[in-house]
Nucleic acid binder design. Structure first.
Length: 156
DNA sequence: GCCAACGTTGGC
DNA sequence: GCCAACGTTGGC
């Protein structure tokens, strides 16, 4: 079992959008970065857990926990000529972009990026590193458990 | 809206 | 295959 952190712009798919979707599940479309694609295509397993992060917004941070519920499959939008995610170099035989499906496990009380930065235990989290832009990053077990404890304390 | 950091492109 | 130029990300 691996842990991840997945960023989404709330104007694209917010935690409440996800909550309203059928099966509370969404195809993680629109990833056009090779590192992030490779995580989804080569490493993610059904059952892996991820923090759901809002990025490019006023209050960046963690808003929920999601679960990987599919193996990687081609991102359908790469074939949609009307989509901003259209990829002319992709063919059905040789798709360039892949994604997984994620399902909401639970919404949590917002944990801000400032709060996360305040804990020495989390200083090595990739998402908190200067210059980090990768929209999917790994979270190690210690980091995951530390944040899971924060979530439990917040919900009491 | 700024801009540092990083990824991608393409001429050579 | 180098690397300058350009484009994008995303916190601030």
């Amino acid at each position: 079992m691996q842990y991840w952190l997945m960023k989404s712009e709330p104007t694209e798919v917010s935690i409440d959008d996800l909550s309203s979707f059928k099966q509370q599940t969404v195809e993680w479309f629109g990833i056009r970065n090779y590192q992030a694609r490779n995580f989804m295509r080569n490493q993610m397993q059904i059952g892996d857990l991820a923090f759901f992060w809002h990025s490019s917004c006023k209050q960046p941070g963690i808003y929920g926990i999601v679960k990987i519920v599919s193996k990687a499959h081609p991102d359908s939008l790469q074939f949609d000529i009307n989509s901003e995610y259209y990829e002319p170099k992709s063919t059905p035989e040789n798709p360039r972009w892949w994604c997984v499906d994620v399902q909401l496990v639970k919404k949590i009380n917002y944990i801000s990026i400032q709060q996360l930065r305040s804990y020495p235990e989390l200083h090595t989290m990739q998402v908190l590193q200067k210059g980090n832009r990768l929209s999917i990053t790994k979270v190690d077990g210690k980091q995951w458990n530390f944040i899971a404890n924060l979530i439990n304390q917040n919900s009491v």
